[in-house]
Design a protein around this nucleic acid. Structure first.
Lengths: 115, 115
DNA sequence: AAATTATACATAATAAAATTAGGTATTATA
DNA sequence: TATAATACCTAATTTTATTATGTATAATTT
């Protein structure tokens, strides 16, 4: 399987990015979305996902609302007001970090596609 | 200062990449090169660098030769024969991982510059 | 109908990898 | 002469992930 080592340190920003885009998501849905976006290559393990989600709630970035689908709980996460304010800067930071990796590993020349 | 969180898990491949390019490098030189390549934004700490270098030697990927500049030791690292064989695949893997991050964080559209 | 897979949450033990802090010493510069 | 730069290193701690385990419902396959 694909090396997920690179994901170390990126799970929290990734969660923020996905929830920002989708407005709200639940844990299992996040794992599926990441699988989908990565063509099945990235599998977020539950042992990484749930602690990260809980930390983001602790940090006041995410808020939760539970819904019951039949007898099964579904815990939706969305950005808090504070999270909405800080998300853009956090995503800009990770963007710069990733582009820095591109630069360090000499994956340049890469330019924006103007087509 | 710049978030170095993204570097987690990338130090070993980065060392391999730099040593492959430069043929041989010593520890301190690696920290300076990374600073230079990142416009002073990335500072590799010694507590991360030396254990990583030592592990790469243990793994048989790097070999060392000491040189004495005056009374000061300088330990050069270069790719072993085995390291030369395995480096391209390792770098391809990290390349794919970084491009996966680009994709996940929606930093696309990015294409190779054909200029 | 029974077994398996998918959905859905979660935690605990362990391992890996970094940060922070500390240590030693030489050489160059202010 | 004091400080900064060069040059190596390790240890304690923290952070973060993996692996394993646990519980339970719903859907699908045999």
């Amino acid at each position: 399987m694909f090396s997920q080592e690179i994901l170390k340190g990126t799970i929290k920003p990734l969660i923020i990015k996905l929830i920002k885009d989708e407005r709200r998501m639940y844990g299992y849905q996040i794992t599926q979305k990441v699988k989908e976006l990565s063509s099945q290559k990235i599998v977020i393990t539950e042992g990484a996902l749930y602690p990260a989600l809980h930390k983001l709630v602790e940090e006041g970035i995410l808020i939760t609302e539970s819904e019951w689908i039949g007898n099964r709980e579904r815990k939706y996460y969305s950005l808090s007001e504070s999270g909405k304010e800080t998300a853009p800067a956090k995503l800009e930071e990770i963007r710069e970090s990733i582009l820095m990796l591109v630069q360090l590993f000499d994956l340049k020349p890469l330019v924006y596609d103007t087509k």
